[in-house]
Design a binder for these strands. Sequence first.
DNA 1: TCTGGGGTCCTAGGACCC
DNA 2: TCTGGGGTCCTAGGACCC
Length: 411
Amino acid sequence: MSNHRIVAHIDMNAFFASVEQQHNPELRGKPIAVVGSHERTVITTSSYEARKFGVKTGMAKWEAVRVCPQLIFVVGDNRKYTYTSSRIMDMMRDYTPLVEVFSIDEAWIDITHSLSIFGTPERIAYLIKARIKESFGITCSIGIAPNKLLAKLASDMQKPDGLIIIKPEDVSRLLERMPINELCGIGKKMQRHLNMMSIYTCGELGRCEEPRLTKKFGILGRIYRQMGQGIDNSPVSPMEEDDEVKSVGHSMTLRQDVSKREDILKYLLQLSEMVGRRARRYEVSGKTITLYVRFADFYSSIGKQDTLRNYINQSDDIYRTAVGILDTLELPMPIRLLGVRLTNLQYHTQQLSLFPEERRKTEMVRAMDAVNNRFGDFTVTFGSLLATEEKGSHVIPPSWRPDGIRNIDVQ
DNA sequence: TCTGGGGTCCTAGGACCC
DNA sequence: TCTGGGGTCCTAGGACCC
């Protein structure tokens, strides 16, 4: 028995689009794109049929239509994807308890100790592929390697429906000519920096003298060098109960750029409610509020934060703090995007206040949250928000939801 | 009608305390 | 009378991931 780990990375192919095609047979085999419900939306995911035409994630809608006139747009439904995702993740736990969920459509599993029961890594990969295909009609790409970094690299190498296995003895040969930007963790900017140092491939990165890298990138320099060598000792770590989120935020690009304080406040109220409700659902409160503003030119932005003495998670407290920050800001031009984020979090077991006034409010908020969690955002809310004409712009009406998931209690 | 939204982690400088 | 220095918290911004 060898002493190296066996890690698999599973990556659903065109996840959101595949889920939609599975739900609606008429969409199968056709170029579709999942988008947001607002006017200034972009492509979230497109089907492989659409990708053939050059439709890409992040493209503006009009741009996608230009390259693919017959493209079918589907407004995304996060609950559907979350539900499918968690069932797929559960399924993987049949093969090992070591499942690390990386995002809604990706996970690592450590199958080092699963081989005695299930056989070879290939067999486990095929079992998982077959079950995902059978239960959800979705294909996935699987990469198997001695660690997470390489497993992720491997799953990227063959799409869709791929299976690539990197054996320890193949690592250095594979990395020698592999472009550095294929590594998870090296993005556009870092690629540029490294290119300027004449480093283009993983082989070159791995051979670079450490001081040269640490001088420029600090601690990260050392990590990059190891990545270039295919070294990654981080464990596959399943979500623990005490694996806590560190911030809760919500932001949105506005339907039109706004300048009037009154308009800005309407959006801030909505955002504060989204943040507050999510914070309460997680049973956290925070004492730092960050207000983020992106201006009409798209490139200039400001993030400003305020740290309070108390921990808060009530929407109106968040709103008041956000407005307080807004009032300290100079606004040189109209605003394109607004964001509110709660950080510096504290987890708590909710306890009711001794003061009747506060207790009534907490209970009322809890009741509203329950309704909203069940029937969709902004079904009930504070009166001031209902009065705005913006109400509804981000609502997914319950009736819109496709059959089959109405009874699912989304948490 | 150009260009989404959810996060995490790191850095660097300043305030403040002992 | 010079110029200490470590720890912690806070803020603003940037890079990266999906």
